[in-house]
Amino acid sequence: MTMGWGRGAGAVLLAAAVVAGASACGGPAEAEPKPAASAAKKPVKAVTTQWDEMMEWWASHDIGCIAGNDAEDDPEGCAIRIQDYVADVRKIRKAMNTDPAAPKGFYTSAYVIIDQLETYASTPAGEDDTEGWLAARPLIWMEGHALGEWIAAHPLQ
Rank of each mutant, 00 (worst) to 15 (best):
N69G: 12
Y85Q: 10
D84F: 11
F106V: 12
L13P: 08
D88N: 07
T119L: 06
M96R: 08
A39S: 09
M3C: 08
D73G: 13
E30Q: 12
A102L: 03
A125L: 11
W5N: 15
R7A: 13
Q83H: 11
D73E: 14
G77S: 00
D128H: 14
G132K: 03
M3W: 15
A110C: 06
V44C: 03
R81Q: 12
R93N: 09
P33V: 04
G105N: 00
E143Y: 15
Y120K: 07
I140N: 12
W141A: 15
V18N: 04
W5P: 13
A36Y: 08
W51N: 00
H61K: 13
G64H: 04
I82S: 09
M96A: 11
V44N: 01
V47Q: 03
E131M: 14
T119I: 05
A110H: 08
I114S: 02
A95F: 00
A135G: 10
K34Y: 12
A153F: 00
S122L: 01
I140V: 15
V44A: 09
R137A: 08
W58G: 01
T48V: 00
V89K: 03
G68S: 02
K42S: 07
D62H: 06
K41N: 06
W5I: 15
E53T: 01
I140M: 10
A71T: 15
T48R: 12
G144E: 14
L14M: 11
E127F: 09
L147D: 11
I140G: 09
T98A: 00
T123G: 05
R7C: 11
I82V: 14
D129R: 10
R81L: 12
A59D: 09
A135I: 08
E56H: 08
P124L: 10
A9D: 08
A95G: 00
P138R: 02
L134S: 15
L147T: 11
E149W: 05
A125P: 00
T108G: 08
A39F: 05
W5G: 15
P138C: 06
S23G: 02
A87V: 03
D73V: 14
A101C: 04
M142A: 15
G26H: 03
V86R: 01
A135L: 10
A36D: 12
A146N: 10
P43N: 06
Q50A: 07
E131S: 15
A59P: 05
N97F: 04
D128F: 13
T49W: 02
A59C: 02
A95P: 00
T2A: 07
